[in-house]
Computed example of a mutant assay.
Amino acid sequence: MFRTHTLFAALALSSPLVLAQDIPTRFGSLQIDDEHQLLYKKRPFNPEIQGNNSLDVLGIYPSGNRDVVLIQDNGGTACPAQYYFISLSSKGASATSSFGTCSDLVQVKQAGDAVTVTMPGFMGEFAPRAEQRKAAREKHVFLFRNGVLTENGKIVR
Rank of each mutant, 00 (worst) to 15 (best):
G153S: 07
P80C: 09
G76D: 15
R129H: 06
P120F: 08
A111M: 06
T118Q: 10
T6Q: 13
C79V: 05
V69R: 00
K41L: 14
P120I: 03
R3L: 13
S29M: 05
N46C: 02
A135F: 04
S98M: 12
Q31L: 09
L88G: 07
Q50P: 00
Y61A: 07
G121W: 11
Q37R: 14
Q31K: 14
M1R: 05
I49K: 07
A10E: 14
V106Q: 10
E48I: 11
N46K: 12
R26K: 13
H36P: 02
L13T: 10
A114M: 09
T150Y: 03
I23C: 06
I86H: 04
F45E: 11
T118D: 03
N152V: 00
F85S: 08
S87I: 05
Q110P: 00
V68K: 05
F144L: 01
D113A: 09
G112I: 01
E131K: 13
V115F: 02
I23M: 03
F126T: 13
E125Y: 05
K91H: 08
T25W: 07
Q31C: 00
K41D: 13
N53W: 05
G100W: 03
E48Y: 00
H5C: 13
P128Y: 05
T150P: 02
Q82T: 14
F45L: 03
A136I: 01
F85I: 00
G153M: 11
G147V: 12
R26N: 10
T77D: 14
N152P: 07
F85A: 11
Y84C: 04
L39M: 01
D22I: 15
R43L: 14
Q110S: 00
S14N: 00
H36N: 15
L105K: 15
P80A: 11
G121R: 01
F99Q: 09
Q107S: 15
P44Q: 07
E138S: 03
F8Y: 10
Q50D: 08
H36L: 08
L17S: 12
V68N: 07
R145A: 12
I86M: 04
Y61K: 02
S94V: 15
V115A: 02
S89R: 08
R26H: 04
F99A: 06
F27L: 10
A135W: 01
L143E: 15
T25H: 04
G153Q: 10
S94P: 01
I32A: 03
A20P: 01
L88A: 03
M123L: 10
V141L: 01
M123P: 00
G51M: 10
M1Y: 11
Y83H: 04
V106E: 06
Y61R: 05
N52W: 08
G75N: 12
L11N: 09
N52A: 14
F122R: 09
T6W: 08
S15G: 06
L13A: 14
Y83K: 01
D56K: 14
A78W: 05
G121H: 02
A78F: 12
F142I: 04
A114T: 15
M123V: 12
T77F: 13
G112Q: 06
K154Y: 07
E131Y: 10
V117S: 01
G76V: 12
N46H: 08
Q132V: 07
R137T: 15
K134G: 01
A135D: 03
S94F: 05
L7T: 12
K109L: 11
T4H: 13
T150A: 04
M123C: 11
E125C: 00
Q31N: 12
P128M: 08
E125F: 07
L13I: 06
L11V: 10
N52D: 14
N152S: 10
V18M: 13
S63K: 06
